[in-house]
Design a binder for these strands. Structure first.
Lengths: 357, 357
DNA sequence: CTGAAAGCGCTTACAG
DNA sequence: CTGAAAGCGCTTACAG
């Protein structure tokens, strides 16, 4: 790549003038500036050293896959951007697998990319990457996963408590035979929700029945299959809790097609990590994760770490919330009004201990 | 901020050793490295000059508002990231209003942010910003807007042709009384769709009726209101084309609530810029914009401009497409099968001229 | 393994 | 308005 020296030679001026012209110094003569800029453009000049950008943080996909198109990730990123607004940082989307060379460690790679800190999205298979980054003491925060390791900072949503709450809501409506739908490959979040399902049953003396557990690919058709299967059982459930947004939506839509009435024949509690609960009919009662807020808080925590030069580990859990809409009601469809504000007070608040930190 | 000199003094070593330690030179003694890194961390050392990152491009919101959470923008950005994969660039999300100071021009601002080029998202009120950036000859491409100016590069989707196609599909099913729903504040895209609506009516000798035009805020409730209003007319339409995703979904859902049957009582063609047409019931026939592809192509064009040091202006129009799903059928609900692949061949292909460039 | 010195490319008083 | 020279902070042969 051309240097100021080269541009100076080609334009017939000194390197001082080249530098001034490139930086729009008003002292430079108009014609001179034009000539220098023309030469610079033609030779594709790009400064190779100079004042570094110190306001970039990375939104890093630890695995090869960038899932930026998903509703969850996009809400997350928009929250990150909002959270970086006030600290005046910018976010760079980074695919770790693409560019990191073998002979550099993570800190070096991030420094080479000009990053002051990183928010990390990880899958089960790349948890070691997160540990390594943390071990190198590079400012980092894993978003939407949890670690037992003392030294890995993370921020995550907990849906265990609200899963119990969702189940208690169904039970309070009179349901006893409640199915559960989850992704075939459960991540820690799906496991939390499953645990909440079981815990609520146990607390209310309802026996756990393996036949009511439906594992499907997280897709519309997975939710559709699950509903078809459960409704053709000898004794179908009267309610179901789907621990995944796509399964939930697929379930609600196949109900129309098959003539199953929601909530009269089947009360559905879904899971929502964006706003899809409002785009189906009937609007979906759901355990909701506020992805934008998760991203927002993550951005604030990371910039605080950067400002304070590292310091203490962050291990934060944000709450989810149960929003009651129209897809739930008592078994058989006795008339029940949806509360005005979509909230519902748990029957036995004692068992759903709060642990926002 | 601390310099290598300062770190050297505090750690009791030379600046050479500081530099080596910071860059993980294997020659440095382990204990020395630890000491230097400890000092550097404590004093919050950040290199202030050095080798610049030359692989960043900006995803720039020209106005103050970043609409990254929308389905359109998130699909767009995920396409951009995919398009930057092979040229090995990274994308930085930039809010122009936030950081640009008055005494620097756009090129200077972008150079200060370390950007090699920018993809610009603009609103009607910030079209002048796009013109200025282009005038400064900074590598740029406006995404999802059109300019008559010769020197502003852009890439956009055209929904005019497919709006005509959508209308012809409805007409071919036997509809004559077809309503149109659009956003109250129409952007150039909504205007294109409206023009397509009118052109198709005219081509088939169907009189234009202002009473069948519904302008609503782009929201679920806007779509719901429109449907309620049109279905209580003395002579309701038998079909409607909604030029906006939220209006379309709101329309489909309120139909269930009011007992209106889709497509039997009202055939609905919507507009989709993501994947929402598959999350409603019945699945929505829609004119679809492939936002991810738009972003992908934009990224390829921009990196090509950067590689070739500017050069020619890009003014590219990508096609949209009509996808036939279950929300459309003949008036009164005569039985019609949805084609297997969701495609439909226009009745009079002659009038829908192709202009992909 | 380390430091003094030279070097990197760009920028900036200083002098005219 | 421009250039020669000094300077910026970091890096890197070179010598030990």
């Amino acid at each position: 790549m051309a240097s100021v020296r080269e541009i100076a030679r080609l334009a017939g001026v000194s390197t001082s003038t080249v530098s001034r012209a490139l930086n729009n110094d008003p002292a430079v003569n108009g014609a001179t500036r034009e000539k220098v800029l023309a030469v610079a453009n033609q030779s594709g000049y790009v400064a190779s050293v100079g004042r570094l950008v110190t306001t970039n943080v990375g939104f890093v996909y630890a695995g090869g896959e960038t899932t930026l198109g998903s509703t969850f990730d996009s809400a997350l990123l928009s929250g990150v951007v909002r959270g970086l607004e006030q600290p005046k940082f910018d976010v760079v989307v980074i695919n770790l697998q693409r560019d990191k060379s073998q002979d550099e460690n993570y800190s070096q790679f991030f420094r080479r990319k000009g990053l002051r800190g990183v928010l990390v999205r990880t899958a089960a298979s790349t948890r070691d990457v997160c540990r390594s980054i943390a071990d190198e003491h590079f400012p980092m925060l894993v978003v939407s996963e949890r670690f037992d390791d003392e030294n890995v900072s993370f921020i995550d949503c907990d849906s265990h408590r609200e899963s119990i709450q969702a189940m208690e809501y169904l039970i309070s409506l009179g349901h006893r035979r409640i199915a559960f739908g989850m992704h075939t490959v459960p991540d820690s979040n799906h496991i939390d929700r499953f645990a909440g399902y079981k815990k609520a049953l146990e607390a209310h003396g309802i026996p756990y029945d393996e036949k009511l557990i439906f594992r499907q690919n997280a897709s519309f058709s997975g939710g559709a299959s699950a509903v078809k299967m459960m409704m053709t059982m000898a004794v179908p459930p009267t309610a179901v809790y789907f621990a995944d947004p796509l399964l939930s939506v697929g379930a609600i839509n196949v109900a129309h097609e098959t003539g199953i009435r929601i909530p009269e024949n089947l009360a559905v509690v879904g899971f929502d990590d964006a706003d899809i609960r409002h785009s189906v009919y009937p609007t979906m009662t759901a355990v909701c994760q506020d992805a934008a807020r998760l991203g927002y808080e993550a951005a604030l925590e990371l910039t605080r770490m950067i400002r304070e030069n590292g310091g203490t580990r962050i291990q934060r859990i944000l709450p989810t919330f149960l929003e009651v809409n129209e897809s739930t009601g008592p078994p058989g469809g006795a008339s029940v009004r949806v509360p005005e504000n979509g909230s519902w007070t748990p029957v036995s608040p004692g068992m759903t201990e709060v642990h926002e930190s």
